[in-house]
Simulated scan of single mutants.
Amino acid sequence: MDFEFGPADDAFRHDARAWLTAHLTRPTTPRTWERLLGRDGWIGIGWAEAGYGNRQARLTQQVVWAEEYARAAAPARVGHIGENLLAPTLIAHGTDEQKARFLPAIARGDELWCQGYSEPGAGSDLAGIRTAAVRDRDGDTYRIDGQKIWTSLAQDADWCFVLARTEPGSRRHHGLSFLLVPMDQPGRIDVRPIRQMTGTAEFNEVFFDGAEARAGHLVGGEGNGWRVAMSLLGFERGVSTLTQQIGFAEELERVIRVALESGAAGDPVLADRLVCQWAELRTMRFNALRTLGSSEDPDEGAASVAKLLWGGWHQRLGELAMAVRGAAAAIGPYDWSRERPYELDALQHLFLFTRADTIYGGSDEIQRNIIAERVLGLPREPR
């Protein structure tokens, strides 16, 4: 496998680096930053279609952009759910009217999205969702009732794509539909932040009480929501995987730096663990590049295998960070009793956040079931 970049990629890197350098000169709000990216065409460079205000870039150039963005320590993206998940899904399954309505607004950075999948009783097992959408007699509107949970960035989102049950009495993956729902519906949509042990609250509960969605904003046809939803999850295997790994590399470098500064790296056991983390991360990168560069679609278990690998790796990195810190890792936050966010250092935050890595996005147990049943063809255990 050839992982080298060519002259065109080097020129693209120069342009990306120059743009980031020029625009990361002053503080800005998340929405303003999204609009800056959109104004100059940096949103949607990996979309299969152009013409929505987005420049296009081949795969290696998308990797270059992800690398330069991370290298520049640019702001965390609040538009990535719309750009990297919904937009490719609309390109694959949406109508021309839906593409024309939503893709330009995403590309401009004007509209932010969140994902309405998980529910209190249906997290990793999405087929058990209960949120219901009933079509009005006029046929133009759906009314949605139910609850979603762990909804990232719902507090900032303008829209939510919601997986809901549109066929009463249906079970499992049958009778589900994929709806685009505006969030600005006071009294019908209630967003409640979930305070985590890290002190942050980027996840939310979202309650729908007769929330409205236009029938024209049904993607893929009524009852085809499972197919559309699974297609969307497949896009999580894209270049965003490499972006995530770049973030992992920065965290690993921080842990190594602390280990060297504190002398913890002199412990042969800790040194061996640091080397293993580095080697495993490089392996995950090569695997992601191989998968992305393949002319064939990944098998059904590719996403599950990747989730198992990075979830376990990141969790072990958090544990290693605490081992490197030693006794100082046990020192608590500045003041646990105050309403403001806990004052954790970077390694404590890393450890606490990674406790959830093997749960969110599909628990390890669910991922192993998918691999066993859909890839290896093993029979289900009788219930």
Rank of each mutant, 00 (worst) to 15 (best):
F5V: 11
D15Y: 01
A16F: 05
W19A: 07
P27E: 15
T28N: 07
T32Q: 12
G41K: 09
G46E: 13
R55N: 09
T60D: 14
R71I: 03
A72H: 09
A74Y: 05
R77L: 15
R77M: 15
H80E: 14
I81A: 04
L85E: 12
A87C: 07
Q98S: 10
D110G: 02
C114E: 01
Q115C: 06
S118K: 03
P120I: 12
G121S: 09
G123M: 13
A127F: 13
R130C: 07
A132E: 10
D136R: 06
G139P: 06
R143K: 12
A157L: 13
D158Q: 12
L163I: 07
A164P: 03
H174K: 11
L180C: 10
V181L: 14
M183K: 06
R188Y: 10
I189H: 01
I189G: 00
I189N: 00
P193Q: 01
R195M: 08
T198N: 07
T200D: 13
V206A: 06
E212V: 10
G221Y: 09
G221A: 03
G225Y: 15
T243S: 13
T243N: 02
G247C: 08
G247L: 08
A259H: 08
G266S: 07
L274P: 10
Q277W: 04
W278I: 10
W278D: 15
A279R: 12
F286K: 02
L292H: 01
S294E: 07
E296R: 10
R316M: 01
M322S: 06
I331D: 14
G332A: 09
D335V: 05
S337V: 06
R340C: 10
Y342Q: 08
E343P: 00
Q348G: 08
F351N: 05
D357A: 14
Y360A: 02
S363P: 01
I370F: 00
G377N: 06
P382K: 11
